[in-house]
Design a protein around this nucleic acid. Structure first.
Lengths: 135, 135
DNA sequence: TATTAATAATTCACATATTAATTAAAGTGA
DNA sequence: TCACTTTAATTAATATGTGAATTATTAATA
């Protein structure tokens, strides 16, 4: 659980990962991407923004809508986190037999082809797959 | 979710079901039987006892230990609940094809033979299985 | 246009999980 | 017996899930 090393909860981690990929995500989309229920997400964002990692912004066209983005501090965090993620990933890679690893990845690939409604997941897994091949 | 019809939460329901089977269960055993973490269980019991369904009792031999039991009101509730449980069970039974049902039950049977560490589950399933056969 | 309906985010009240700290009661050894 | 340790239950602080109610804003319609 890498996020614990950075004083983050699992939900905060999920939100941040989305915001590292997309700047300025509408609140209701964030609900769908993180699978965190709206009333909970409000609190998660409150706490993240209290720590200066993200911030809110209201849409000009429709002032009911709110979008969220990672602050500079939030973006910086990604840089600090990346090496730990890669390290953990490497450990996992060596801990599992290469063949099994490939099977696992292939299985995930297939799964994500079905899960069209969650493009984020598919994308992340695909990226990691390629990293692995390249290593 | 039958328990909702009686204003109970899932955890409260789990505690009650245990206390309907055993009178006076030591707190630490209740943790194991319900799989509810101790600090949470304290609250669950608080709320149940605030509603008069269960009560605490301290061990005379070791006054650190607490055991829990269903009050008269808590026991009465079981009588009111039973018909609803049986009804829901019947609905489930007719909703599923008889053959599939049998396969399901057989599968559970096999599972419960393995799960020696949780005799309660095995017992309940076995009882219901017999009910079904008798119907 | 004045009302009314629908939406988006939020708040509220409540129950629970998690981790650490606390309290009370036993147990232990010099 | 006194100081020390362990154990059982509980409390505290924090984060989250759930369902209902609110608030602000926009859309729709008579």
């Amino acid at each position: 659980m890498i996020f614990k090393e950075f004083g983050l909860t699992e939900q905060q981690w999920r939100v941040l990962r989305v915001l590292w990929e997309h700047k300025n995500v509408p609140f209701h989309e964030l609900v769908g991407m993180t699978l965190i229920p709206a009333p909970s997400l409000v609190g998660v964002i409150d706490r993240l923004s209290r720590n200066g990692l993200v911030a809110r912004r209201r849409s000009k066209s429709d002032r009911r809508q709110v979008s969220v983005y990672a602050t500079e501090m939030g973006c910086d965090l990604e840089e600090k986190v990346r090496p730990r993620v890669e390290q953990a990933y490497a450990e996992l890679r060596t801990a599992i037999d290469t063949t099994k690893w490939q099977q696992l990845i292939d299985g995930l690939e297939q799964l994500t082809q079905v899960g069209i409604d969650r493009p984020e997941t598919a994308k992340v897994v695909r990226q990691q797959h390629q990293q692995h091949e390249g290593a």
